[in-house]
Design a binder for these strands. Structure first.
Lengths: 216, 216
DNA sequence: GTTCGCCTAGTTCCTATTGACTATTGCTGC
DNA sequence: GCAGCAATAGTCAATAGGAACTAGGCGAAC
Protein backbone atom coordinates (compact mmCIF):
# COMPACT_ATOMS: atom_id res chain seq x y z
CA UNK A 1 0.00 0.00 0.00
CA UNK A 2 1.55 3.30 -1.07
CA UNK A 3 0.81 6.17 1.28
CA UNK A 4 1.27 9.92 1.43
CA UNK A 5 1.19 11.26 4.98
CA UNK A 6 0.45 14.88 5.82
CA UNK A 7 0.71 16.44 9.27
CA UNK A 8 2.11 19.73 10.55
CA UNK A 9 3.92 17.93 13.34
CA UNK A 10 7.19 16.84 11.80
CA UNK A 11 7.77 14.54 14.73
CA UNK A 12 4.60 12.55 14.14
CA UNK A 13 5.18 12.68 10.43
CA UNK A 14 8.62 11.13 10.54
CA UNK A 15 7.80 8.66 13.27
CA UNK A 16 4.67 7.58 11.41
CA UNK A 17 6.69 7.20 8.24
CA UNK A 18 9.11 4.89 10.01
CA UNK A 19 6.38 2.97 11.76
CA UNK A 20 4.32 2.41 8.61
CA UNK A 21 7.49 1.45 6.79
CA UNK A 22 8.27 -1.06 9.51
CA UNK A 23 4.83 -2.60 8.99
CA UNK A 24 5.58 -3.20 5.35
CA UNK A 25 3.84 -0.21 3.81
CA UNK A 26 5.35 2.18 1.35
CA UNK A 27 5.28 5.77 2.57
CA UNK A 28 6.10 7.54 -0.65
CA UNK A 29 6.01 11.08 0.70
CA UNK A 30 5.80 13.08 3.91
CA UNK A 31 4.06 16.44 3.70
CA UNK A 32 4.09 19.20 6.27
CA UNK A 33 1.32 21.23 4.66
CA UNK A 34 -1.82 20.44 2.62
CA UNK A 35 -0.20 22.03 -0.41
CA UNK A 36 2.77 19.71 -0.14
CA UNK A 37 0.38 16.80 0.23
CA UNK A 38 -1.50 17.77 -2.92
CA UNK A 39 1.75 18.04 -4.86
CA UNK A 40 2.92 14.70 -3.49
CA UNK A 41 -0.35 13.00 -4.42
CA UNK A 42 -0.19 14.46 -7.92
CA UNK A 43 3.29 13.08 -8.35
CA UNK A 44 3.00 9.65 -6.73
CA UNK A 45 -0.67 8.75 -7.20
CA UNK A 46 -0.76 6.72 -3.96
CA UNK A 47 -3.53 4.35 -2.94
CA UNK A 48 -4.21 6.44 0.15
CA UNK A 49 -3.41 9.81 1.71
CA UNK A 50 -3.41 10.21 5.49
CA UNK A 51 -4.24 13.84 6.16
CA UNK A 52 -4.28 15.69 9.47
CA UNK A 53 -7.50 17.70 9.92
CA UNK A 54 -5.95 20.16 12.29
CA UNK A 55 -4.06 22.57 10.11
CA UNK A 56 -3.61 26.14 11.17
CA UNK A 57 -5.84 27.94 8.72
CA UNK A 58 -8.27 25.05 8.50
CA UNK A 59 -7.78 24.44 4.79
CA UNK A 60 -7.42 20.69 5.21
CA UNK A 61 -11.06 20.02 4.35
CA UNK A 62 -10.60 21.97 1.13
CA UNK A 63 -7.49 19.90 0.45
CA UNK A 64 -9.59 16.74 0.38
CA UNK A 65 -11.52 18.08 -2.55
CA UNK A 66 -8.38 18.98 -4.48
CA UNK A 67 -6.76 15.64 -3.83
CA UNK A 68 -9.85 13.78 -4.98
CA UNK A 69 -9.88 15.89 -8.09
CA UNK A 70 -6.31 15.42 -9.21
CA UNK A 71 -6.16 11.77 -8.19
CA UNK A 72 -9.60 10.12 -7.91
CA UNK A 73 -8.10 6.72 -7.20
CA UNK A 74 -6.43 8.04 -4.06
CA UNK A 75 -8.49 7.50 -0.92
CA UNK A 76 -8.22 10.22 1.71
CA UNK A 77 -8.27 9.32 5.39
CA UNK A 78 -8.42 12.12 7.92
CA UNK A 79 -6.28 11.98 11.01
CA UNK A 80 -7.43 13.98 14.01
CA UNK A 81 -6.54 14.63 17.61
CA UNK A 82 -10.15 14.85 18.71
CA UNK A 83 -13.31 13.15 17.53
CA UNK A 84 -15.27 16.09 16.19
CA UNK A 85 -18.46 14.87 14.55
CA UNK A 86 -19.01 18.19 12.79
CA UNK A 87 -15.68 17.86 11.02
CA UNK A 88 -16.31 14.20 10.22
CA UNK A 89 -19.44 15.15 8.33
CA UNK A 90 -17.75 17.86 6.29
CA UNK A 91 -14.76 15.66 5.55
CA UNK A 92 -16.90 12.77 4.28
CA UNK A 93 -19.04 15.20 2.30
CA UNK A 94 -15.90 16.56 0.62
CA UNK A 95 -14.88 13.07 -0.41
CA UNK A 96 -12.82 11.67 2.44
CA UNK A 97 -13.01 7.91 2.88
CA UNK A 98 -12.19 7.77 6.55
CA UNK A 99 -11.55 9.55 9.80
CA UNK A 100 -9.40 8.13 12.60
CA UNK A 101 -8.23 9.50 15.92
CA UNK A 102 -4.60 9.86 16.89
CA UNK A 103 -5.38 8.06 20.12
CA UNK A 104 -5.77 4.83 18.15
CA UNK A 105 -2.92 2.30 17.94
CA UNK A 106 -1.04 2.04 14.66
CA UNK A 107 -2.50 -1.34 13.79
CA UNK A 108 -5.96 0.18 13.94
CA UNK A 109 -4.91 3.09 11.77
CA UNK A 110 -3.52 0.66 9.23
CA UNK A 111 -6.72 -1.35 9.34
CA UNK A 112 -8.66 1.83 8.59
CA UNK A 113 -6.35 2.60 5.68
CA UNK A 114 -6.98 -0.93 4.39
CA UNK A 115 -10.71 -0.46 4.64
CA UNK A 116 -10.50 2.84 2.78
CA UNK A 117 -8.48 1.26 -0.01
CA UNK A 118 -11.04 -1.55 -0.28
CA UNK A 119 -13.63 1.16 -0.90
CA UNK A 120 -15.26 1.03 2.51
CA UNK A 121 -15.92 4.00 4.75
CA UNK A 122 -13.32 4.00 7.52
CA UNK A 123 -15.11 5.81 10.31
CA UNK A 124 -16.05 4.67 13.79
CA UNK A 125 -19.76 3.79 13.58
CA UNK A 126 -20.71 5.78 16.67
CA UNK A 127 -18.95 8.86 15.37
CA UNK A 128 -20.56 8.57 11.96
CA UNK A 129 -23.94 8.20 13.58
CA UNK A 130 -23.48 11.40 15.54
CA UNK A 131 -22.16 13.16 12.45
CA UNK A 132 -25.32 12.35 10.55
CA UNK A 133 -27.82 13.03 13.30
CA UNK A 134 -28.17 16.80 13.56
CA UNK A 135 -29.35 17.40 10.01
CA UNK A 136 -31.85 20.07 10.99
CA UNK A 137 -30.44 23.15 9.29
CA UNK A 138 -33.91 24.66 9.45
CA UNK A 139 -34.59 26.91 12.41
CA UNK A 140 -30.85 27.42 12.52
CA UNK A 141 -30.03 30.16 15.01
CA UNK A 142 -26.93 30.93 12.95
CA UNK A 143 -29.13 31.99 10.09
CA UNK A 144 -30.31 34.81 12.27
CA UNK A 145 -26.79 36.19 12.56
CA UNK A 146 -27.27 37.63 9.09
CA UNK A 147 -29.93 39.97 10.30
CA UNK A 148 -28.05 41.50 13.18
CA UNK A 149 -27.37 45.21 12.84
CA UNK A 150 -23.94 46.75 13.38
CA UNK A 151 -24.98 48.00 16.78
CA UNK A 152 -26.16 44.56 17.72
CA UNK A 153 -22.81 43.10 16.72
CA UNK A 154 -21.13 45.59 19.00
CA UNK A 155 -23.49 44.52 21.76
CA UNK A 156 -22.66 40.91 20.97
CA UNK A 157 -18.99 41.70 21.38
CA UNK A 158 -19.67 43.22 24.78
CA UNK A 159 -21.66 40.17 25.77
CA UNK A 160 -18.83 37.91 24.67
CA UNK A 161 -16.49 39.90 26.86
CA UNK A 162 -18.69 39.25 29.85
CA UNK A 163 -19.75 42.85 30.33
CA UNK A 164 -22.81 43.80 32.34
CA UNK A 165 -25.50 46.04 30.91
CA UNK A 166 -23.89 48.94 32.75
CA UNK A 167 -20.41 48.36 31.34
CA UNK A 168 -21.91 47.85 27.93
CA UNK A 169 -23.80 51.14 28.12
CA UNK A 170 -20.56 52.85 29.14
CA UNK A 171 -18.63 51.20 26.32
CA UNK A 172 -21.22 52.15 23.71
CA UNK A 173 -21.81 55.60 25.12
CA UNK A 174 -25.55 55.13 25.62
CA UNK A 175 -28.01 54.76 28.48
CA UNK A 176 -28.48 51.44 30.24
CA UNK A 177 -31.97 51.18 28.94
CA UNK A 178 -30.69 51.48 25.40
CA UNK A 179 -28.05 48.84 25.85
CA UNK A 180 -30.74 46.71 27.41
CA UNK A 181 -33.00 47.11 24.42
CA UNK A 182 -30.21 46.13 22.06
CA UNK A 183 -29.57 43.05 24.13
CA UNK A 184 -33.26 42.29 24.10
CA UNK A 185 -33.49 42.56 20.32
CA UNK A 186 -30.35 40.49 19.95
CA UNK A 187 -31.75 37.70 22.10
CA UNK A 188 -35.04 37.79 20.22
CA UNK A 189 -33.35 37.60 16.82
CA UNK A 190 -31.20 34.72 17.94
CA UNK A 191 -34.10 32.94 19.55
CA UNK A 192 -32.36 32.51 22.88
CA UNK A 193 -33.39 33.47 26.36
CA UNK A 194 -30.22 34.79 27.95
CA UNK A 195 -27.07 36.60 26.98
CA UNK A 196 -25.16 33.60 28.24
CA UNK A 197 -26.90 31.43 25.67
CA UNK A 198 -26.12 34.01 23.01
CA UNK A 199 -22.46 33.89 24.00
CA UNK A 200 -22.55 30.09 24.04
CA UNK A 201 -24.07 30.09 20.58
CA UNK A 202 -21.35 32.31 19.22
CA UNK A 203 -18.49 30.52 20.87
CA UNK A 204 -19.80 27.10 19.93
CA UNK A 205 -20.91 27.65 16.33
CA UNK A 206 -19.95 31.17 15.41
CA UNK A 207 -16.52 31.03 13.94
CA UNK A 208 -14.43 34.09 13.45
CA UNK A 209 -15.81 34.26 9.95
CA UNK A 210 -19.33 34.83 11.25
CA UNK A 211 -18.43 38.34 12.27
CA UNK A 212 -18.96 41.20 9.85
CA UNK A 213 -15.54 42.00 8.40
CA UNK A 214 -15.58 45.62 9.46
CA UNK A 215 -16.28 44.76 13.10
CA UNK A 216 -13.93 41.85 13.72
CA UNK B 1 19.77 6.59 26.33
CA UNK B 2 16.83 4.94 28.07
CA UNK B 3 13.56 6.78 27.55
CA UNK B 4 9.98 6.68 28.83
CA UNK B 5 7.51 8.31 26.44
CA UNK B 6 4.09 9.57 27.48
CA UNK B 7 1.38 10.88 25.15
CA UNK B 8 -2.36 10.40 24.94
CA UNK B 9 -2.14 9.75 21.23
CA UNK B 10 -1.36 6.09 20.93
CA UNK B 11 -0.43 6.61 17.32
CA UNK B 12 2.31 9.08 18.08
CA UNK B 13 3.36 7.02 21.07
CA UNK B 14 3.91 3.84 19.12
CA UNK B 15 5.40 5.55 16.10
CA UNK B 16 7.75 7.55 18.29
CA UNK B 17 8.77 4.38 20.09
CA UNK B 18 9.67 2.73 16.81
CA UNK B 19 11.42 5.82 15.49
CA UNK B 20 13.53 6.34 18.61
CA UNK B 21 14.32 2.64 18.64
CA UNK B 22 15.45 2.88 15.04
CA UNK B 23 17.82 5.70 16.01
CA UNK B 24 19.49 3.47 18.56
CA UNK B 25 17.73 4.61 21.69
CA UNK B 26 16.09 2.42 24.25
CA UNK B 27 12.41 3.22 24.73
CA UNK B 28 11.76 1.26 27.90
CA UNK B 29 8.09 2.15 28.28
CA UNK B 30 5.17 3.80 26.47
CA UNK B 31 2.59 5.53 28.66
CA UNK B 32 -0.84 6.78 27.65
CA UNK B 33 -1.44 8.79 30.83
CA UNK B 34 0.72 10.72 33.30
CA UNK B 35 -0.01 8.10 35.94
CA UNK B 36 1.31 5.35 33.70
CA UNK B 37 4.36 7.49 33.02
CA UNK B 38 5.02 7.95 36.72
CA UNK B 39 4.73 4.23 37.31
CA UNK B 40 7.00 3.48 34.37
CA UNK B 41 9.62 5.97 35.57
CA UNK B 42 9.49 4.49 39.06
CA UNK B 43 10.10 1.04 37.63
CA UNK B 44 12.72 1.74 34.96
CA UNK B 45 14.55 4.82 36.25
CA UNK B 46 15.26 6.08 32.73
CA UNK B 47 17.68 8.87 31.86
CA UNK B 48 14.86 10.87 30.38
CA UNK B 49 11.08 11.02 30.19
CA UNK B 50 9.38 12.59 27.17
CA UNK B 51 6.05 13.88 28.42
CA UNK B 52 3.20 15.39 26.44
CA UNK B 53 1.97 18.66 27.93
CA UNK B 54 -1.44 17.99 26.53
CA UNK B 55 -2.83 16.39 29.66
CA UNK B 56 -4.94 19.21 30.98
CA UNK B 57 -6.19 19.91 34.44
CA UNK B 58 -2.57 20.37 35.46
CA UNK B 59 -2.04 16.65 35.37
CA UNK B 60 1.03 16.84 33.20
CA UNK B 61 2.62 19.75 35.01
CA UNK B 62 1.93 18.05 38.32
CA UNK B 63 3.36 14.85 36.89
CA UNK B 64 6.71 16.57 36.34
CA UNK B 65 6.94 17.22 40.03
CA UNK B 66 6.10 13.64 40.92
CA UNK B 67 8.55 12.19 38.42
CA UNK B 68 11.32 14.43 39.70
CA UNK B 69 10.51 13.30 43.21
CA UNK B 70 10.52 9.57 42.69
CA UNK B 71 13.42 9.59 40.27
CA UNK B 72 15.58 12.73 40.53
CA UNK B 73 18.10 11.42 38.02
CA UNK B 74 15.39 11.28 35.34
CA UNK B 75 15.24 14.40 33.20
CA UNK B 76 11.79 15.43 32.03
CA UNK B 77 11.33 16.92 28.58
CA UNK B 78 7.93 18.27 27.67
CA UNK B 79 6.46 17.60 24.26
CA UNK B 80 3.84 20.00 22.96
CA UNK B 81 1.74 20.67 19.90
CA UNK B 82 1.97 24.44 20.26
CA UNK B 83 4.67 26.68 21.65
CA UNK B 84 2.89 28.09 24.68
CA UNK B 85 5.29 30.25 26.64
CA UNK B 86 3.03 30.25 29.69
CA UNK B 87 3.23 26.48 29.89
CA UNK B 88 6.98 26.50 29.29
CA UNK B 89 7.50 28.65 32.34
CA UNK B 90 5.35 26.47 34.55
CA UNK B 91 6.96 23.29 33.28
CA UNK B 92 10.51 24.54 33.90
CA UNK B 93 9.49 25.86 37.31
CA UNK B 94 8.17 22.43 38.21
CA UNK B 95 11.46 20.81 37.32
CA UNK B 96 11.25 20.01 33.62
CA UNK B 97 14.56 20.10 31.75
CA UNK B 98 13.21 20.83 28.33
CA UNK B 99 10.31 21.71 26.09
CA UNK B 100 10.11 20.80 22.41
CA UNK B 101 7.41 21.22 19.80
CA UNK B 102 5.91 18.34 17.86
CA UNK B 103 6.60 20.26 14.67
CA UNK B 104 10.32 19.56 15.11
CA UNK B 105 12.03 16.71 13.26
CA UNK B 106 13.00 13.64 15.24
CA UNK B 107 16.70 14.40 15.08
CA UNK B 108 16.07 17.70 16.79
CA UNK B 109 13.95 16.03 19.47
CA UNK B 110 16.74 13.57 20.10
CA UNK B 111 19.26 16.40 20.28
CA UNK B 112 17.07 18.07 22.90
CA UNK B 113 16.89 14.84 24.88
CA UNK B 114 20.69 14.65 24.73
CA UNK B 115 21.02 18.17 26.00
CA UNK B 116 18.63 17.43 28.84
CA UNK B 117 20.59 14.34 29.83
CA UNK B 118 23.80 16.39 29.80
CA UNK B 119 22.16 18.67 32.34
CA UNK B 120 21.42 21.54 29.99
CA UNK B 121 18.11 23.26 29.54
CA UNK B 122 16.54 21.99 26.32
CA UNK B 123 14.32 24.89 25.32
CA UNK B 124 14.33 27.08 22.26
CA UNK B 125 16.05 30.30 23.33
CA UNK B 126 13.35 32.54 21.84
CA UNK B 127 10.62 30.59 23.61
CA UNK B 128 12.45 30.68 26.92
CA UNK B 129 12.93 34.40 26.55
CA UNK B 130 9.23 34.94 26.06
CA UNK B 131 8.46 32.60 28.92
CA UNK B 132 10.56 34.68 31.28
CA UNK B 133 9.35 38.05 30.10
CA UNK B 134 5.80 38.37 31.43
CA UNK B 135 6.53 37.72 35.09
CA UNK B 136 2.98 38.44 36.10
CA UNK B 137 2.00 34.80 36.51
CA UNK B 138 0.27 35.89 39.71
CA UNK B 139 -3.39 36.75 39.33
CA UNK B 140 -3.49 34.86 36.05
CA UNK B 141 -7.04 33.56 35.67
CA UNK B 142 -5.83 30.72 33.47
CA UNK B 143 -3.58 29.48 36.22
CA UNK B 144 -6.71 28.93 38.27
CA UNK B 145 -8.05 26.49 35.69
CA UNK B 146 -5.64 23.96 37.09
CA UNK B 147 -7.38 23.95 40.42
CA UNK B 148 -10.86 23.27 39.13
CA UNK B 149 -12.34 19.99 40.27
CA UNK B 150 -14.01 17.53 37.91
CA UNK B 151 -17.40 18.68 39.07
CA UNK B 152 -16.47 22.27 38.41
CA UNK B 153 -15.40 21.40 34.89
CA UNK B 154 -18.79 19.83 34.34
CA UNK B 155 -20.37 23.00 35.66
CA UNK B 156 -18.13 24.98 33.35
CA UNK B 157 -19.39 22.95 30.43
CA UNK B 158 -22.99 23.69 31.43
CA UNK B 159 -22.13 27.38 31.67
CA UNK B 160 -20.54 27.30 28.23
CA UNK B 161 -23.74 25.79 26.90
CA UNK B 162 -25.71 28.67 28.29
CA UNK B 163 -27.65 26.61 30.77
CA UNK B 164 -29.46 28.21 33.69
CA UNK B 165 -28.88 27.04 37.23
CA UNK B 166 -32.01 24.96 36.97
CA UNK B 167 -30.98 23.16 33.78
CA UNK B 168 -27.54 22.67 35.21
CA UNK B 169 -28.95 21.11 38.37
CA UNK B 170 -31.08 18.82 36.21
CA UNK B 171 -28.13 17.87 34.02
CA UNK B 172 -25.90 17.10 36.99
CA UNK B 173 -28.64 15.40 38.97
CA UNK B 174 -28.29 17.65 42.01
CA UNK B 175 -30.29 20.35 43.75
CA UNK B 176 -30.26 23.93 42.46
CA UNK B 177 -28.51 25.06 45.58
CA UNK B 178 -25.68 22.64 44.90
CA UNK B 179 -25.34 23.77 41.34
CA UNK B 180 -25.23 27.34 42.59
CA UNK B 181 -22.49 26.47 45.04
CA UNK B 182 -20.42 24.89 42.29
CA UNK B 183 -20.91 27.94 40.12
CA UNK B 184 -19.99 30.16 43.02
CA UNK B 185 -16.81 28.21 43.73
CA UNK B 186 -15.95 28.23 40.05
CA UNK B 187 -16.34 31.99 39.80
CA UNK B 188 -14.29 32.51 42.93
CA UNK B 189 -11.47 30.30 41.70
CA UNK B 190 -11.41 32.07 38.36
CA UNK B 191 -11.60 35.48 39.98
CA UNK B 192 -14.55 36.60 37.88
CA UNK B 193 -17.90 37.98 38.91
CA UNK B 194 -20.33 36.30 36.58
CA UNK B 195 -20.74 33.06 34.70
CA UNK B 196 -20.77 35.09 31.53
CA UNK B 197 -17.27 36.32 32.32
CA UNK B 198 -16.23 32.76 33.05
CA UNK B 199 -17.56 31.70 29.67
CA UNK B 200 -15.82 34.66 28.02
CA UNK B 201 -12.58 33.67 29.72
CA UNK B 202 -12.80 30.15 28.45
CA UNK B 203 -13.79 31.03 24.93
CA UNK B 204 -11.15 33.74 24.66
CA UNK B 205 -8.14 32.12 26.27
CA UNK B 206 -9.13 28.61 27.12
CA UNK B 207 -8.21 26.44 24.22
CA UNK B 208 -9.63 23.00 23.79
CA UNK B 209 -6.50 21.71 25.45
CA UNK B 210 -7.38 23.47 28.67
CA UNK B 211 -10.06 20.90 29.31
CA UNK B 212 -9.28 17.77 31.27
CA UNK B 213 -9.00 14.95 28.77
CA UNK B 214 -11.57 12.74 30.46
CA UNK B 215 -14.19 15.49 30.39
CA UNK B 216 -13.78 16.92 26.91
C1' DG C 1 -7.84 8.50 63.40
C1' DT C 2 -7.84 12.99 62.43
C1' DT C 3 -7.38 16.42 58.96
C1' DC C 4 -8.32 17.94 54.52
C1' DG C 5 -10.58 18.55 50.15
C1' DC C 6 -14.67 17.73 47.45
C1' DC C 7 -19.51 17.23 46.82
C1' DT C 8 -23.53 18.08 48.63
C1' DA C 9 -27.34 21.35 50.47
C1' DG C 10 -29.15 25.03 52.45
C1' DT C 11 -30.10 30.36 53.94
C1' DT C 12 -30.38 35.49 53.39
C1' DC C 13 -29.93 39.65 51.15
C1' DC C 14 -29.28 42.13 47.25
C1' DT C 15 -28.58 43.12 42.31
C1' DA C 16 -28.95 41.96 37.46
C1' DT C 17 -31.46 40.28 33.86
C1' DT C 18 -35.55 39.38 31.26
C1' DG C 19 -40.23 39.89 29.09
C1' DA C 20 -43.57 42.81 27.50
C1' DC C 21 -44.57 46.82 26.64
C1' DT C 22 -44.57 52.22 24.70
C1' DA C 23 -42.37 56.02 22.37
C1' DT C 24 -39.22 59.49 20.04
C1' DT C 25 -35.65 60.57 16.65
C1' DG C 26 -33.33 60.26 12.29
C1' DC C 27 -32.36 58.07 8.09
C1' DT C 28 -33.60 55.65 3.62
C1' DG C 29 -36.26 54.39 -0.26
C1' DC C 30 -40.55 54.37 -2.77
C1' DG D 1 -44.44 62.91 2.06
C1' DC D 2 -44.67 58.65 4.23
C1' DA D 3 -43.65 53.86 5.46
C1' DG D 4 -40.13 51.16 7.48
C1' DC D 5 -36.27 50.42 10.17
C1' DA D 6 -32.47 51.24 13.38
C1' DA D 7 -31.18 53.48 17.34
C1' DT D 8 -32.45 55.77 21.16
C1' DA D 9 -34.95 55.80 25.94
C1' DG D 10 -38.11 54.53 29.22
C1' DT D 11 -41.43 51.59 32.68
C1' DC D 12 -43.02 47.57 35.53
C1' DA D 13 -43.26 42.96 37.28
C1' DA D 14 -41.15 38.58 37.65
C1' DT D 15 -37.26 35.76 37.64
C1' DA D 16 -32.39 34.54 37.75
C1' DG D 17 -28.00 35.27 39.40
C1' DG D 18 -24.35 36.64 42.79
C1' DA D 19 -22.15 37.41 47.60
C1' DA D 20 -21.48 35.57 51.85
C1' DC D 21 -22.25 32.53 54.70
C1' DT D 22 -22.98 27.55 57.40
C1' DA D 23 -22.73 22.57 57.47
C1' DG D 24 -23.00 17.41 56.92
C1' DG D 25 -21.13 13.21 54.52
C1' DC D 26 -17.35 10.83 52.54
C1' DG D 27 -13.02 9.24 50.93
C1' DA D 28 -8.03 9.94 50.70
C1' DA D 29 -3.81 11.32 52.82
C1' DC D 30 -0.96 12.05 56.75
Amino acid sequence: MRIVVCDDHLLLLEALGLALGAKGHDVVALAGTPDEAIAAVAMHRPEVCLLDVNFPGGNSVAAIHQIREISPETKVVMLSAEADHAVVGRAIAEGASGYVGKEKPIVEIIEMLDRAVRGQLAVEPALLQRALRPQKTTEDPLWALQFLTDREWQVMRCIMEGQTTEEMAEALGVQRSTARTHVQNLLTKLGVHSRLQAAALMSAHGSHESWPAHLR
